[in-house]
Design a protein around this nucleic acid. Structure first.
Length: 835
RNA sequence: GCCGAAGUGGCGGAAUGGCAGACGCGGUCGACUCAAAAUCGAUUGAGGCAACUCAUGUGGGUUCGAGUCCCACCUUCGGUACCA
């Protein structure tokens, strides 16, 4: 094996008939690259601009999955391509190591989450290395290591100091039998996945980040070089809507002194048509205003609503339900006294948790009013039809389109669109509300009642309140010896040693916060750590941020389009406001790859028995074949089924490449065939270059296959032009280097005797080599293909027409017809439109 | 439900509004072989002797020309705030 030689003189004679043996080549070259530290990325290399490529780091679930390869192999190909284009590319890797599965494993298998996670990381690091990727392992991060989560905790303290962290009551899924909170994933059909008990919603004090303070800035993503659909999803997720807040007076103020209900509406123009109010079942006012004769019904309704998921509650197809509270409020504009209901289609987390109902002009309200016999008051008259104005008759459904205000006092006769502002202004003048903007985006709940996460660095002191742990006392370390049996509290609450501490401000005895942080926090800043992974003094230095940030190319699963990517953008903006990073956005370019499916076209899972193990594929076919097949099977942004039978096609291709290069035809001087080969190799280079830039790996591989087939044909013919052949071999090897790094290195080494192909420059194609003298032109009559003709590449319309009309088939088609039009697209087609 | 994406041969897929099916899998036939595997070659959307016709989820539309653009719908996939 050439990789074992230490010199650059590995000019072993190409062994005729020597078979392509991928595994031995791959293992040897990987060892050589590692020994030579080929992929360690220095912060600066003379003459090479820095470029930061990043693929989302994996959760260490146990074994590397085909999905990981599908995400990382093309990313690595891109990183390698840009290295050949002259960049100093950093392509780091790490592990998103906190999370629920480790705790599940602990409960099931009795292994400690820390040990389970450590073992998985070690196994997966080895599996990742078998990909032959350019990961710089000297920069590896592990979010569950105290050296890392110390700084995740530091982030919390920074957000706290910026006034972006606050505590408030929030609901969590609660299993009364297991005595524990449940993740949404652990709730199946409203029941606990472990014990099948009906899940409840339980309120508890939890920490939030005020991401909504950045809503407006996060909305502005138009300059990002991201897929449009991802930017659209983010904008819709943030969900800005313009409207008004409106206060309604409670007929009887509550014992606590609350005398109004505030609602958000996008339709202030319909305020005069309010005929009832609806509160979310969880709205704090509900228990205060409900009259004694309605209490039982409302309580029963709240209980029922607590079992419904948000998706169910928001479904517009589901029949609306609700309960009357017995209380009334008064519409300031009209003096109308209206009933106050509770209904689960109103969510406590959106707007103010209360809505005004205008059944005449909102379909949900209309259905609700019909069902419960509530009044319907028309305040927007539909436009006249055929000169006949609306006759005042009842609606069969809500009128949600434009119209003119009626029954709205001084606003009568106004077009409703203009009335929005007018009514809102009138409300503002009287102190009843006014124009406002509402976002669908909610503040980020980061508290988790779990063990395997970074502890929230807060101490509760009777005198000082919640106090952040000072930086010099970080990290607040996770105690190892903890009881995992669910007790109704976070496992950390059971550790006396952990809980009892002293207040960092006054020194008195105090208690630690026992919740841990959402793992999305760890992944919101990991890309800032790679530039400075060993820093013990800071999360990262400003200098390292200026050297590497923002990330030039981020790639990851489309499932992260909203949450992770929005949280990461939020953190970056906070970091900017703290003066820590350059620019406003963390990821200049982003590409979302699709999902790889099982051979049956469904998501791979153990229970379906359709999991393909990457280690087996590497063992059977080799890493290069496996990498290339993942790139070949379809467009990267779409994913698709992994077909265990089709990979053989890619294996055959690399074998053909091997045979063609190591056992060439007799090389002669043959200018004519040399020109054709040269056209083929340079056209391929152009295609592959364009495809790699656009991340179209499937068609890039297909183009290389076509070039290989051309070379195979010459090999079968027995001779090839020496200069063109040598050049074709060189170009093919260089083009193979990004997607198939091992075979490229081996063939390069054999052909040139030098090392390494991965330190070569990407070649430029010669446009002159690609030009043809003649082109095939399609000839259509009335848009249907009737013939094909060969014309000079630069033929004008008259010349093309003359040739076409001279062919018997076209002459026959045109005979006796009136020529209406001729359309000529040079190099493509000629279309005769006849009658 | 809402937001986003995708539907093309037996299968994965290709196609700046311009020859639908590149490339590959599978199939069929052939070469090599005692035989098989591997490899190589030919062929392969459907119908038709052919001219030609039909064909890109469904139904409409725009255009000389539509897989591609527009409208309506159907199906599948991703996300839906505690899976990561």
């Amino acid at each position: 094996m050439t990789s074992d030689t230490t010199s650059d003189t590995s000019t072993s004679e190409p062994g005729r008939g020597e078979r392509y043996a991928p595994r031995s080549i791959e293992v040897a070259w990987q060892a050589r690259w590692e020994r030579d530290d080929l992929y360690r990325t220095p912060d600066h290399v003379e003459g090479r601009p820095n470029r930061y490529h990043l693929t989302m780091f994996p959760y260490p679930s146990g074994d590397l999955h085909v999905g990981h390869w599908f995400a990382m192999a093309p990313s690595d190909t891109l990183a390698r391509y840009f290295r050949m284009r002259g960049h100093n590319v950093m392509f780091p890797m790490g592990f998103d190591a906190f999370g629920l599965p480790a705790e599940n494993a602990a409960l099931k298998g009795g292994l400690h989450p820390a040990d389970w996670t450590r073992g998985n990381i070690e196994r997966m690091r080895g599996q990742l290395k078998s990909m032959g990727a350019t990961f710089d392992w000297s920069r590896e991060v592990n979010t569950s290591a105290p050296e890392y989560y110390k700084w995740t905790q530091w982030w919390f303290t920074q957000l706290f100091k910026q006034g972006l962290a606050y505590r408030k009551n929030a609901l969590a899924n609660w299993c009364p039998s297991c005595n524990t909170t449940l993740a949404n994933e652990q709730v199946v059909d409203g029941r606990c996945e472990r014990c099948d008990t009906l899940v409840e919603q339980r309120a508890m004090e939890q920490w939030f980040f005020a991401i909504t303070k950045y809503a407006e800035e996060l909305l502005h993503n138009e300059d990002l070089d991201w897929p449009e659909h991802v930017k659209t999803m983010q904008r819709n997720w943030i969900g800005r809507s313009e409207g008004a807040e409106a206060a309604f007076a409670l007929e009887s103020p509550t014992a606590e002194g609350v005398d109004e209900i505030r609602v958000f509406t996008t339709r202030p123009d319909t305020l005069h048509g309010v005929t009832f109010m609806v509160l979310a079942p969880e709205h704090p006012l509900v228990t205060q205003i409900t009259t004694s004769d309605h209490l039982d019904a409302v309580r029963a309704y709240q209980e029922r609503a607590s079992h419904a998921t948000e998706i169910e509650r928001l479904s517009t197809e589901r029949e609306k339900t609700g309960a009357f509270t017995g209380a009334y409020c008064v519409n300031h504009l009209t003096g109308d006294r209206v009933q106050i209901w509770v209904a689960d289609y109103v969510l406590a987390s959106y707007g103010t948790g209360a809505v005004m109902a205008v059944p005449a002009h909102d379909q949900r309200d209309f259905d609700f009013a019909k069902k419960y016999g509530l009044p319907i008051k028309v305040v927007i008259a539909p436009p006249a039809i055929d000169g006949k104005p609306w006759d005042g008759s009842d609606f069969a459904e809500a009128w949600t389109a434009e119209g003119t205000l009626v029954a709205s006092k001084q606003f009568d006769g106004m077009p409703n669109v203009g009335a929005k502002k007018a009514v809102a202004n009138y409300m503002a003048e009287h102190g009843w509300g006014g124009s406002t903007i509402n976002y669908r985006l909610r503040d980020w709940l980061i508290s988790r009642q779990r063990y395997w996460g970074a502890p929230i660095p807060i101490v509760y002191c009777d005198d000082c309140g919640p106090v952040t742990v000072p930086e010099e006392q970080l990290p607040v370390e996770l105690p190892y010896d903890v009881e995992f049996v669910p007790t109704g509290q976070s496992p950390l609450a059971l550790s006396e040693e952990f809980v009892h501490t002293t207040c960092p401000q006054c020194g008195k005895p105090a208690r630690r916060e026992t919740d841990t942080m959402d793992t999305f926090m760890c992944s919101s800043w990991y890309y800032m750590r790679y530039p400075d992974p060993q820093d013990a003094e800071a999360a990262f230095s400003r200098a390292s941020a200026d050297t590497w940030l923002p990330v030039d190319q981020y790639t990851g699963g489309s499932e992260h389009a909203t949450m992770h990517l929005l949280y990461a953008r939020f953190f970056y903006k906070v970091a900017r406001d703290l003066g820590l990073v350059p620019g406003d956005e963390p990821f200049t370019r982003y590409f979302s790859q699709g999902q790889i499916l099982g051979p049956d076209g469904r998501r791979m899972s153990k229970s379906r028995g359709n999991v393909v193990a990457p280690d087996d594929q590497v063992e059977k076919w080799g890493a290069d074949t496996f990498r290339a097949y993942l790139m070949f099977l379809g467009p990267w942004d779409q994913g698709g089924p992994y077909d265990v039978d089709s990979i053989v096609g890619v294996s055959r291709w690399l074998n053909r490449v091997w045979n063609v290069v190591t056992d060439p035809p007799a090389l002669v001087d043959d200018a004519a065939r040399g020109k054709a080969l040269r056209r083929s190799s340079h056209a391929t280079l152009q295609k592959v270059t364009e495809d790699l830039e656009a991340k179209r790996f499937n068609t890039a591989i297909a183009a290389m296959m076509e070039l290989t087939n051309d070379m195979q044909r010459l090999r079968d013919e027995g001779t090839a032009d020496e200069a063109a052949w040598t050049e074709a071999v060189r170009l093919l090897t260089l083009m193979l280097a990004p997607p198939c790094p091992h075979i490229a290195e081996e063939l390069w080494s054999r052909a040139s005797g030098t090392y390494s192909v991965h330190q070569q420059s990407w070649p430029d194609y010669d446009p002159a080599a690609i030009v043809r003298d003649t082109v095939d032109l399609v000839v259509q009559v009335n848009g249907k293909v009737r013939d094909r003709i060969e014309v000079a590449t630069d033929a004008d319309e008259a010349a093309a027409r003359a040739t076409a009309e001279g062919t018997p088939r076209i002459a026959e088609q045109l005979a006796g017809k009136d020529l209406v039009r001729v359309i000529y697209v040079p190099g493509r087609l000629l279309n005769f439109v006849v009658r």
